[in-house]
Design a protein around this nucleic acid. Structure first.
Length: 594
RNA sequence: GCUGAUGUAGCUCAGUUGGUUAGAGCACAGAACUCAUAAUUCUGGGGUCGGUGGUUCAAAUCCACCCAUCAGCACCA
């Protein structure tokens, strides 16, 4: 029975390029996961988009003296390109500046309000008279009340690292024009997390054995500590308007609406494919499983606050049957962080490998292979170019690429470009054993993938490739062919069929090269669907680019190969390139002298 | 400071409810082989399991304290 699997990934801030940390932590894992489930025949919906709001974007826009719109559109288009280059197969990768997202976010706000989960509160905040607006904490500078440092920001002192309340700053001034801001009263809406505290604890206490320890322990602790209301509106102009009269100067705060994107993007996708109710398969069908792939800094927002928003919404938005509830996250497989050459990635210090650069110089599959091999599933890990080169050469090329090349090359040259037949003696013990071992991989690797143990899954698949090398060595068909070409042909048949199986088992990790292998083996069709960008025009006439995926022509199936003897092979070529050790040095040099 | 996670061979990681000489891949050393991108296969060396103390016949595994790294701590999301 096909399952409905919703794959959500963190919404990247559209204020800079993506780097390897983003890929390894939040974008590659869900793609591997989604590809597996599609092969398995499950109904997968994978959605996300660019976060077009948020302070970092307005900061960057101010710094470049352009509009926030210009900033986020620029990087949004880059994201689309990056995801296509690495084969991250979103059914929809949209952004949060769409009419649809505005409407859904406002509807959720209204539902929360109607259900009594929002309250208003008045606070004192800094207001700039020269600019005529309230200033976010980060826009205020002053002297740190704790250490006396003069350049402290309103939210944090960079010198002593203390978290600050801007009201406590000595001699506060605006970062923009140096003017002295004044305190003024302002009213905001708060999400009443306190009221939902018990429900959140119940949710986190049931059926969470499959959650990673870090995620569940942290979330439980967070919720047990007592949740307090959080402001969900801001005095800013860039963002989604509050859907109430008299709030023209306020916007929904980005943390409240960005996570709503998972829901609104699902709805947008359904509209795009002309099945406007289809999103309900993932949001209202109780058996559907929803996964949220994020980095560890995002855990509270996905494991606590987003469920709270869904609960507060009343959980039957856009649904006449009030007995139905919106699905809460089934799993939040958060990753730790990826470091680089022993140091934390840093955008400001330009200590990062940017995804577009990586795509320019390397093929996507080796990068996917390496990033998954070192994915920070349970702890921070370290990316080094030396290790990348080593794993590419000594593991990917040596064990798998070479296996494919030697067997396909041999079959192509010595058996007339066809899959040889099984000889009259049939299969012997060793033949049956290697086939059984690899076929069992559909079970074991499938289970690992379904449990989001993606590193272990890849390792298991590589183990089978190594076992095939052992099998081949035992059979030595290059020797046997001299005395008994028919018997050697049986071994080559078995090896080809094993490779045909491994092609599927490895395809979630290495989709591009497995497709090529698929063709070398003589198949005509596509293992996976087609990825493309598309421009959508909304009711208000505005247009936006999005990444889409059409799975209708995908022929790959997560099941053992039935490779036919006599199938015509295509002339093979190596799937991967060996990398010169100097590559590592060159890349490091490039980092140090950009 | 408070809360949580992580710390096992040079590197990346496994180690189920505590139980024989702590495992894998790669790297390293030796051998075999030559179909293959000098790839492959076999054998071998290599670890006081972050530290200290405790519980136990027995601890990488349980408890306490400590150290290191990372994250969160409510206006970054």
């Amino acid at each position: 029975m096909a399952e409905n699997i919703l794959v959500c990934t963190a919404w990247p801030y559209a204020n800079g390029n993506l780097h390897i940390g983003h890929l390894a932590g939040a974008y590659l894992p869900p793609d591997i996961f989604a590809r597996y489930h599609r092969l398995q025949g499950n109904n997968v919906l994978m959605v996300s988009g660019s976060d077009s709001h948020g302070t970092p974007i307005t900061l960057k826009a101010d710094a470049e003296d352009v509009s926030p719109l210009e900033i986020f559109e620029r990087y949004h288009l880059r994201f689309l390109e990056t995801f296509q280059q690495f084969g991250i197969t979103y059914d929809l990768f949209t952004h949060t500046d769409t009419e649809n997202h505005y409407r859904v976010s406002q509807d959720i706000f209204t539902a929360c309000l109607d259900n009594g989960y929002l309250y208003k509160k008045t606070e004192q905040q800094f207001y700039s008279e020269t600019e005529g607006r309230f200033l976010p904490d980060r826009y205020i500078e002053g002297t740190c009340p704790k250490c006396g440092y003069d350049g402290a920001r309103g939210d944090q002192c960079d010198n002593c690292k203390s978290l600050l309340d801007p009201v406590d700053l000595i001699d506060p001034r605006s970062k923009n024009d140096g003017s002295v801001p004044i305190l003024r009263e302002t009213e905001h809406f708060y999400l009443d997390l306190h009221k939902l505290n018990e429900d959140i604890l119940d949710y986190l206490s049931q059926d969470k054995d499959h959650w990673r320890p870090n995620v569940i322990n942290f979330s439980l602790q967070y919720a047990k500590g007592g949740l307090k209301g959080r402001a969900i509106t801001r005095d800013i102009k860039w963002g989604i308007p509050v859907p109430l009269p008299g709030y023209d100067s306020k916007r929904l705060y980005v943390w409240f609406e960005a996570v709503i994107g998972y829901f609104s993007a699902s709805i947008e996708w359904a509209k795009n494919v002309d099945q406007p109710e289809k999103w309900k398969d993932w949001w209202y069908q109780p058996q559907a499983k929803t996964y949220y792939f994020i980095g560890k800094d995002n855990i509270p927002f996905h494991a606590v606050i987003w469920p709270a928003e869904l609960m507060a919404t009343g959980r039957h938005l856009y649904e006449d049957d009030t007995g139905k509830f919106l699905n809460l996250p089934y799993d939040v497989p958060s990753n730790e962080y990826l470091n680089m050459e022993g140091e934390k990635l840093s955008t400001s210090r330009n200590w990062a490998i940017w995804a577009p650069d990586l795509a320019e110089r390397f093929d996507p599959d080796p990068v996917r292979f390496y990033l998954n091999a070192i994915a920070p599933e349970s702890r921070d890990t370290d990316f080094t170019f030396a290790d990348f080169v080593r794993r590419n050469n000594d593991e990917l090329v040596a064990a798998w690429g070479n296996l494919v090349n030697r067997v396909l090359g041999f079959a192509y040259k010595r058996y007339d470009g066809k899959v040889p037949p099984i000889g009259p003696d049939g299969l012997d013990e060793a033949d049956r054993q290697i086939l059984a071992e690899v076929e069992a991989g559909f079970e074991t690797i499938g289970e690992l993938l379904a449990a989001v143990k993606l590193k272990a899954a890849q390792e298991e698949a590589m183990k089978l490739a190594r076992a095939t090398n052992v099998y081949l060595d035992g059979k030595a068909p290059w020797k046997a062919i001299k005395e008994d070409p028919v018997k050697a042909g049986t071994s080559i048949y078995v090896a080809l069929r094993v490779i045909d199986n491994l092609k599927i088992l490895l395809s979630p990790f290495l989709p591009h090269t497995c497709q090529r292998l698929h063709e070398y083996l003589g198949y005509q069709d596509q293992l996976f669907g087609r990825q493309h960008t598309e421009s959508f025009i909304e009711e208000n006439g505005r247009e936006h680019e999005a990444l889409c995926y059409d799975n209708s022509q995908a022929a790959g199936r997560w099941e053992p190969s039935q490779l036919a003897s006599g199938q015509i092979l295509r002339k093979p070529a190596p799937l991967f390139k060996k990398l010169e050790p100097e590559v590592a040095e060159q890349e490091i040099a490039r980092l140090l002298n950009p």
